[in-house]
Simulated assay, not measured.
Amino acid sequence: MQSDAGGSATITATSHSPVCRSSRVPDFILHHYEISPFAAKIRAMLGYCELPWLSARTTPMPPRPLVDTLAGGYRRIPVAQIGADIFCDSRVICEEIAALAGRPELSPQSLDGTQRAFVDRAEMGVFFSLVGAATGWPLVRKVVADVGPLGLLRLLRDRKGMREGMSPDARPPQDGTTVVQAYLDDLEVRLTSPFLNGEQPGLIDFSAWHGLWFAIEVGGKSLLPAHPQTRDWFQRLAHLHSTKWRDISADSCIAAARDSEPRALPDSSDSDALLGQPVSIAPSDYGLAAVRGTLVASLPQRFILRRETAEAGVVHVHFPRARFSLEVAG
Rank of each mutant, 00 (worst) to 15 (best):
F214G: 01
G113V: 06
S207G: 13
A99C: 09
A312T: 08
M45R: 08
V296E: 01
G73F: 04
A255D: 14
G293Q: 08
A101E: 06
A117P: 05
V144A: 07
A122L: 10
F234N: 04
K221W: 04
D146V: 04
A13Q: 07
D112A: 06
L299H: 03
Y183Q: 11
Q2V: 14
T59N: 06
R258C: 04
H239D: 14
H31M: 09
F206E: 03
G148A: 06
T58W: 02
T230H: 05
P173C: 10
R323D: 13
R64F: 06
G220D: 05
F28G: 05
S15N: 12
E217N: 15
V147M: 08
P225D: 11
E327C: 13
L51Y: 03
S269L: 05
V180E: 06
L196T: 00
D89V: 05
A134Q: 03
T14I: 12
L153T: 12
V317C: 11
P18R: 10
P283I: 11
P52K: 09
T230N: 05
S207E: 05
F195D: 02
I281D: 02
R103I: 07
L274V: 08
Q181H: 13
D68C: 06
G6P: 03
A134I: 12
K244I: 14
R103V: 07
D205K: 05
R159W: 07
M61V: 10
L70M: 10
D251C: 05
G7H: 10
G287F: 03
L305D: 00
P149N: 07
V19Y: 10
G202H: 00
M124G: 09
E95F: 02
Q174L: 14
R43C: 10
T294K: 12
Q235N: 15
V328M: 13
L66E: 01
V147Y: 02
D120Y: 03
S8G: 11
F214D: 01
L295R: 01
R306M: 13
D232I: 12
A84D: 08
R190Y: 04
D285S: 13
F303T: 04
S242A: 13
P320I: 01
E261F: 09
A5C: 08
R258H: 13
A39C: 10
P26A: 04
F38N: 04
D270N: 15
V189Y: 06
R103P: 00
S167V: 05
A117F: 04
S22R: 13
S298C: 09
A297R: 01
P225G: 04
L150S: 13
P266E: 09
V119G: 00
R323F: 09
E96A: 03
Q174G: 08
P104F: 00
E164L: 15
L70Q: 03
R75H: 07
E308G: 06
T177W: 09
R157F: 10
V328D: 00
P108E: 05
R236V: 06
T135N: 12
A71Q: 02
H239A: 13
Q181E: 15
G330Y: 09
S90M: 00
R159G: 07
R171K: 15
E217S: 15
D85C: 07
R21A: 14
K221N: 07
G293M: 06
A290E: 13
P60N: 09
A13N: 11
V144R: 12
W245Q: 11
A117L: 11
P104W: 02
R154W: 07
